[in-house]
């Protein structure tokens, strides 16, 4: 599916939630997060978008980090959700479900 400008605009608001969702499944380092998002074409994000978001989530206390040795290279920084991050993910998922359902309804009405 091509990533259109409209997709990019809509994605801006949900990328942070998508990152929380990725980390909700497993602890990841940054490149892994980008790869996980890459599996969803509409959510594909450049490192220039993901790194500032990770920094913001870290500052907000929604994710925690730790260094893990990596064979043949410098240690990698792994990200995981904090309790606040888990709560934010749940809250975001609820808000997204409501928004998505209502948008589907209103778009359906608009297109019919």
């Amino acid at each position: 599916m091509p990533t259109t400008d409209r997709t990019v605009q809509l994605r801006k608001g949900v990328l942070e939630l998508a990152i929380l969702a990725v980390l909700g499944r497993e602890e990841c380092y940054s490149i892994e997060i980008i790869e996980r998002l890459d599996a969803f074409p509409a959510l594909t994000a450049t490192p220039g978008t993901v790194y500032p978001l990770l920094a913001r989530l870290d500052k907000a206390g929604l994710v925690a980090t730790r260094w893990v040795e990596a064979g043949g290279g410098p240690p990698r920084k792994y990200y995981r959700l904090t309790r606040d991050g888990r709560a934010s993910l749940a809250e975001g998922a609820t808000a997204w479900a409501a928004l998505s359902s209502e948008m589907t309804e209103i778009l359906g009405e608009g297109l019919s």
Binding site: G24, R25, E27, W67, G71, P74, Y78, R80, T82
Partner: peptide, 23 residues
């Protein structure tokens, strides 16, 4: 600073941390 922070790095084969912090 990085080199000092890396001294506390967990081994690669260590058990993954739970996805949520315990506290």
């Amino acid at each position: 600073g990085l080199r000092r922070a890396w001294r506390g790095a967990a081994p690669e084969t260590s058990t993954p941390m739970p996805t949520t912090e315990p506290s």
